[in-house]
């Protein structure tokens, strides 16, 4: 009988021991508040295809972007199916803080400079704080520096300006799927044609589906709303909505984005206001973006 109690006692002593460790661990999780886990990598890059994604550049990091759009695939053999013609945009985009990015770009098409600021207003998070979506605000301006010409006359410099404001809302649904909606207002001081509205309201929709750890399939569609009343001008009928399908490859420091689109636009101004291609007519443009991110965060690099 005594031995029985002894065993029971020892067993109790043993459980008290491991109980003690679990108790300590429980105390620790009580003592330290869990920090929220902000969702990372909703998209691999700051662009979904041609339009912006909710992603911003991390603080003190610089993103150097080279984007190309080739001619239409249906332009024939003499143009090597579009590869003879290409337009380029070079961009430098810098993370002032983890939430604020400023960018500068230059597109060869119409010699347009673009400047933008982008701020993460709300970050999707789980853990101790639950926010379902990430919301990023974007303001951008564009200046075309192309010489005035009979087909495109500028009477003063103000006419060369365009502006854009965008609200990007996205959610990462688990590891693979992320979806985004991006209501956009675009204002051109000089519209493309006399029957073209100066201000366009457009809704971007897009998403990505991860195929593997390093590759994803992206799609993006900008639907431009018709005029609100009959008296107002809408977008000139020759312009179309941009639909793009992209493929992202991430290699550590670089992101390669390859895509097909009916638009040659690399900025919202061109994407929403100047797209003329139609998928059904075979006006498909091949293009790619290359993004390289450099870290200028020197202090944190040093240890001991």
């Amino acid at each position: 009988m005594k031995r029985c109690f002894l065993i029971l006692g020892l067993w109790l002593y043993g459980t008290a021991m491991s109980f003690g460790q679990d108790y300590l661990l429980a105390e620790l999780s009580k003592a330290q508040k869990d920090i929220p886990i902000y969702t990372t990598a909703t998209f691999k890059s700051t662009r979904l295809v041609s339009g912006h994604s909710i992603e911003t550049i991390a603080a003190k990091h610089l993103d150097f972007r080279i984007s190309h759009r080739f001619g239409a695939i249906n332009s024939g053999f003499n143009e090597l199916f579009g590869l003879d013609q290409s337009t380029i945009r070079l961009g430098l985009e810098y993370g002032v803080t983890d939430r604020l990015t400023v960018g500068l770009g230059r597109s060869s098409y119409e010699k347009v400079y673009d400047y933008y600021a982008k701020y993460k207003l709300l970050r999707q998070s789980s853990g101790s704080q639950n926010i379902p979506v990430t919301v990023t605000g974007l303001v951008a301006a564009y200046t075309t520096t192309q010489n005035t010409m009979p087909t495109r006359q500028y009477f003063n410099n103000l006419e060369r300006q365009s502006y854009c404001a965008q609200l990007l809302v996205a959610r990462k649904f688990g590891e693979k799927l992320s979806l985004q909606v991006s209501p956009t207002v675009l204002h051109r001081n000089k519209s493309e044609t006399p029957t073209d509205a100066n201000t366009l309201y457009s809704v971007g929709m897009g998403g990505r589906f991860k195929l593997s750890r390093r590759t994803s399939l992206n799609a993006e569609y900008y639907y431009t709303l018709p005029a609100f009343s009959k008296a107002d001008l809408s977008r000139d009928a020759q312009f179309t909505n941009a639909l793009s399908i992209g493929f992202d490859i991430e290699t550590g420091g670089h992101v390669f984005q390859l895509h097909l689109s009916n638009s040659k636009g690399m900025t919202e101004r061109a994407l929403i206001g100047q797209t003329t291609g139609q998928w059904s007519m075979g006006d498909i443009f091949y293009g790619f973006n290359i993004s390289r991110v450099f870290s200028f965060d020197k202090q944190k690099n040093q240890h001991q």
């Binding site: 021991m17 003690g20 460790q21 300590l24 661990l25 105390e27 620790l28 999780s29 003592a31 330290q32 869990d34 920090i35 886990i37 902000y38 991390a58 603080a59 990091h61 983890d98 853990g127 550590g252 420091g253 991110v293 870290s295 965060d297 944190k300 690099n301």
Partner: peptide, 26 residues
């Protein structure tokens, strides 16, 4: 967070993984 019980010599450590900060955000 970490704890040590000097009476039982039990030790516990709890790390929030999201807290790891790298010089390179990527």
């Amino acid at each position: 967070s970490a704890a040590l019980n000097t009476a039982t010599k039990d030790v516990a450590v709890r790390i929030q993984v999201i807290g790891f900060k790298f010089p390179n955000k990527l």
